[in-house]
Design a protein around this nucleic acid. Sequence first.
DNA 1: CCAATTGTTATTTA
DNA 2: ATAAATAACAATTG
Length: 271
Amino acid sequence: MPELAEVEYYRQQWEPALGQRIEWVHLNAASRCLRNTDSDLLLNEVPGQLLRQGLAHGKQMCWRMGQGWLGIHLGMAGRLFCAPAPYVPHRHDHLILFTSQHALVFNDYRMFGEIRWHSGPETPLWWQHLPPSPLEPAFSRRVLQRWCERHARLTIKGLLLRQDRFPGVGNWMADEILWRARLHPARLAGELDTSEFPTLHRRIREVCRDALRVIAGVGGSLPPDLNVHIPATWLFQHRWRPGGRCPRCQTPLKREKIAGRTSCWCETCLS
DNA sequence: CCAATTGTTATTTA
DNA sequence: ATAAATAACAATTG
């Protein structure tokens, strides 16, 4: 599930515990989510530390502690929530940070998520040199065009999914962007016309902004259905529905695997 | 049993 | 050698 806005939403879920001390840590050391982590080190070092700051960038998340950094990637089905203590670990809870009042839970039933721990004050390697987010000024129209030229033989859908270029954009956001820009997802990046970049650039930023407002901006309480706040005017609400129709023109939507992922678009809305 | 899933990575292919 | 396509990863659901 988690793309740009969902990641930000889940980041906010742990915020009630900011400034508080982690009293103890629960984790399943055999968990696949800890495959690149020294779980003993994490278990030894995290208790006693202050939770200082939570950062999100694209699909990546990082929690700054007193003397270290906790990296979290939510993968395909990961989520974070904050429950009042006492809290009994549930199935697929891979990591729980306990403060005196809270249980900060990382749960992921599909185990594509990842947890990492970096000791020490200096920024970990994996939190350095993050690619510019589509909402930063560095993500310019010129940069977008250059990337399309550099990956000329890749479909535009496949390009939008690249995290080193469009951090935070995933399958549903890519479809939403292309639908709004009226571009077929299988178009080759190198064959876009110069006149098409302004629209594409605008739509990328628009979908990122709108998604953050509608999903992360709701200031969520406990595990709600994140999607209920997404308007019916978005492709999102129709793309998986059997017999789903384009919310703009009511044409039945097309679905096909492009760039390895099921993609959805409206044939009559293409420009 | 088969196919699907809003993600990433290692391996294979072009 | 580089870039793109594919398989694999795991659990669950229809």
